[in-house]
Each structure stands twice: as structure tokens, then as C-alpha cells.
Design a protein around this nucleic acid. Sequence first.
RNA 1: GCCCCGGUAGCUCAGUGGAUAGAGCACUUCUCUCCUAAAGAAGGUGUCGGAGGUUCGAUUCCUCUCCGGGGCACCA
Length: 580
Amino acid sequence: MTPQELASQLARILADIIAERSDGAERNDGGEPSDGPGRGEGGAEPPAIAVTEADTAVERPKNREHGDWASNAAMKFAKRLGTNPRELAQEIAERIAEVDGVAGAEVAGPGFINITLDAASAGETARRIVEQGAAYGRGDALAGQHINLEFVSANPTGPLHLGHTRWAALGDSISRVLRAAGAEVTNEYYINDAGSQMDKFGRSVLAAALGEEAPEDAYPGAYIQELGKKVLAEQPDLPEIAAQNRAGALELAQELGYRQQLAEIESSLERFNVHFDVFFSERTLHAKGGDGEQSPIETAVDRLREQGHVFEEDEAIWVRTTDFGDDKDRVFTRGNGVYTYFAADAAYYLSKKDRGFGEKIYLLGADHHGYIGRLTAIAGAAGDDTEKDITVLIGQLVNLNGARLSKRAGNIVELDDLLEWLGADALRYWLARYPADSPLALDGEKLRSRTNDNPVFYVQYAHARTRAVDRNAAAAGVDRSAFAPELLTHETETELLGKLQEYPSIVAGAAELREPHRIARYLEELAAAFHRWYDNCRVIPQGDEPVEDLHRTRLWLNDAAGQVIRNGLDLLGVSAPDRL
RNA sequence: GCCCCGGUAGCUCAGUGGAUAGAGCACUUCUCUCCUAAAGAAGGUGUCGGAGGUUCGAUUCCUCUCCGGGGCACCA
């Protein structure tokens, strides 16, 4: 019996009760003017009360005395049924107690229904998890959805730094969680490879390659010098080209430097266990088609104009984004004929729409929060549903104590250095462990510690323990030839099983709310439940005690715990080592 | 001025309208002849920033307000 099955049993019982009550008695209590269509005649039918499994979802009570699972459905429905919560709860409790696998049910407090399961019924979960393996916890709540998830999108003019790492970790985990819930997700990185910062980058790289003094406004940091050397190695005749055709050399240096830098960014991300499906170049939005066809940006302004949202003023072309809640209208084409960044954003949004994505998620830092209004307005102006087709997630900034500034990258904290110092696992886990909207201050030494105060090690240690037990069990002749779930009666076993049963709903909730930190918090609780169980219940008999079915059954439970920790860590992009 | 996000235990932070608001750390004890003690057990702490409101019930939702952080462009 899983919590989901319990919820569906409760929903059935509640629906039965509602049906019985409305069949029988008083339908004439005066009030309730029902003004719906087709209700004009005859005996006023009571308004239908629909029950879904969400209404009867059960919770794991904090207090063990409140049973294995608790429902507050009676309190939710009592009013609508014109009865009091405790009375309704009593009725539900009597019926749920009759269900196979339920050991008992009682009413408590203002109308909670506290349900206790048979040990065998609860223990069955262990076998189910082992059999489902990596699939345990995955669901289909988001099946059929095509989601575009854009994150990081750092300028290709320098290395990734701390400011990008939180979005990299969070975005990739969100993607994994959404996929676990059945969605099809494309991870996308928008490359700002057009515009003045690229020119500045080109000038910086060319000067470095030629050994010239850096221009006034050059990008700081030794990495520019490194890029210059690489560019020169790739294009040894660059000095000659520069002497004859400065503009040509500039373009060449910019291009080669850009390719090099982007490749480095990609490789840093892969080392961070973050994978992008699409790197989308801003330039493609500016580029005209083969036969002088319009560029996507030019097309975009026409499309918005057709929707009636474009106007001209002061020689500039504007989009009336205030119609969609933006705080001011936005310029599309400047007075000098140049497109703004906003124009590219609009064309980019349309590209996502044209590529068939329903929901487009943007993961942005708090310093970009001014984008919410304009991006949402673009969606609206494009004829999309601003509620469902676009989501802008804003994350607060992170700072990390003890991290050394990178001279190479111009006194920022570089991702590559963080990876070397802390490792991808610790960094990813800690960054995914907090909700995006909470400001975050990390302590570097804590991320490196190998004790209880470092949750990533605590969780990984629990996993390694399950593997150690598994290895030792094999050596001691404990196998899975028997499974007797009714024997799993120890307090810590009930608790561990309960945690394991919660996992699918944790994943579903994390996907719905786009909050992978829920997975991390859950894993910490699961690991704690496992450690407690490990300390109390032995899988392998001591001394010359014989191997019994209890030991064999516990081996299933041990493996189930390991499997769920593995599945959860995978959603965070963190490894689950067999040994620590 | 307007907009967004925070304010919960000494510290770092969880908490999708429910029961006595939680976890880790820090502090004090205890537990390996025993599968990884990188672990477990016990010990106490709160004006949930403040004031109103919504309701059977509010840390959670609404309004106002105080404090802290971030943001406002024909920059990219």
C-alpha cells in the first residue's frame, strides 16, 4: 500500500459518502442559488462535489503517535457537506479501516484521520523499489509537455564565474526533475555573440595576440592574454594581416577568440555535469536569409506589428509592452536604425515558440529581475498565454566565503577554480539545496568537510553504507531468496519505509514547483532514517547466528534505500559513490 | 519614487492553510569483541520582524508598516 493508493482509496470512500448523502436526504435547505445553465427546472440538484486524489493526499505525520499516514480531507469537506469534521472523519475512518492492508484508522484533533498500515503492506514497498530500480519515483504528471529551459547564457567574452554556477546547478537540476515528471525538456544556452561587447572582446584579444598594449576599455584578466596566444598559434600570420588590413585582423581575432572561449565554457559546464542541448547564437537572429530574405529580427517586428502592438515615436520603433503589464514601453529599433537588445529578445522568444515549445522557462539572476515585465510582455504580444507559456524564475545572488579570486579571470571567482577546490558534487549539491529566491552565503570549508555538517557527504555516506552492506551480505551468505515484509516491524523500519514511500510525491512536487532543493532536503531525511535503521537493525547476522528470512528481507530494504538515494542524487547531478 | 526577493533557535537555513513550528552546526553526556563511529542516542532554545484582516484553523493568504539585498536605459 503506497500513499498514492491510500489517497485513491480515501477519494473513493469520500465520493461514496457524498453520493449517499445527496441521494438520501434534505436537498431543500433554502440557500444556494444555482445559476448555472440548464438548472432552471425541477428539483434543485445539489451542486456536485468533486473529489480528486489531490484532495485526499495523505501526509506523513511528524509525530509517530499519529500513525503512518494522516489525512485532513474531512476538515476540507465537512463544511460543504453540512456536517462537522469529526463526524465525517469518523465515517471515513471506519471505512478506510476495512481496506486491505490498513491496520487501523482513528480520528484525532479537529478531524484528522490517522491511518496505520499493516507491516506487510508497508514493507511491500521495498520489493517494489528494488524491482523498479532507476524508474522508481519517475512519473507522468508533465507528460506531453515540451519545455524550453534557458539558463546560464553567460557572455562568451570570458570564463564562467561564481555568479553563473548557481544557475548552472539549479537549471540542470530543474531540467532533470522536470524530465523525471515526464516532460520533454530542452536545455538552452543563449550566446550573446552580437553587439558591442563582442567588438570590445575582439579588440582585447587582438591586442593580446599582437603583443600590443591593451586598449583603454579592454577586458581585464590574464585569460585575454592566454586567448591571444592561442589565437596567434592558430593564425600565425595574424601580425601580417593586421599590418595590411586592421579591420580584417580584428574580425579574425574576435572570431577565433570567441570560438576558443565558448569551447572553454562548454567544457567547464560538462565538468560541472551540466549539459546543454542547444547553444543558440544571437547572430542568427540578425542574419539575413540566403536571397536577401529578412532576418528573424526583421520578421519579428512585422509579426508584432500584425498583432497590433508596434508604434513609431521620435523616429524609433516601439512595442507597446505596457499592454501586457510591463512598466514602460520598449524600443525595438533605435532612432539611428539599430536594433536594441530587446529586439533580439523578442525574436528569440518567437524562435522558441516556432520551434514548438509550450512553456518557455527563463532562469535569471536577481540583477535581471527587470526582465520579467518585458519578457512576459513579449509572450503576450506574440499571442501566447502569459500565465502558462512563459515562466521567469529569478534567483538571488550567491556568495562564497573563502573562495580565492582568480587573477586569470580578472579577480572574479572562476568556476574552474571552484571545481578544483571543492569538486563538482559538493558544489552542485549545496547550490541546489536552497530555494532559488533565498540569498545564499556558502562557506567553502564546510563544503570540503567530511562530516555531518556537510549534507552532501552525509547523504553520499548513507549510500556507500548501503553498498557496503550489500557487499558484506553477499560474502555472509545473505541473499534475496526470501522476502517477508511482515517481519519489518522495528520502529526504524517503519520510519524508513515511510520515507521511501514518500519519494515519488517529493519528485512530483519538486517538478511542479520547479524546486529541486526539495529533493536535497528529502535525501537528508532519508539518509538520517537509513542511518538510524542501520544502527538498530542488522542485515548480517552476528557471530554464529543463522541467516534468517528477516535478514534476507532487510537486504531488500537496504537495497531499496540505496536505490532511492541514487535516484535522488541523480536528479541533483551528484554522484552516488559505492565507497567513500 | 516605483518594482522584485528576503526577515523563523546563538549560527546557516527548511517548512505547497493543519495537530506540540523543524534540521544541521555550536555546547554537555553516552554508544563500536557488532554490516563503514564519515554514524547513532539523550539534553533546550523561539514576540515565526511588527500591526490589522480573511477562516473552523495563518509562519503560510491579503493590506499596511519597519529593516536588509537587488532592479529601473533609444547599455549589452
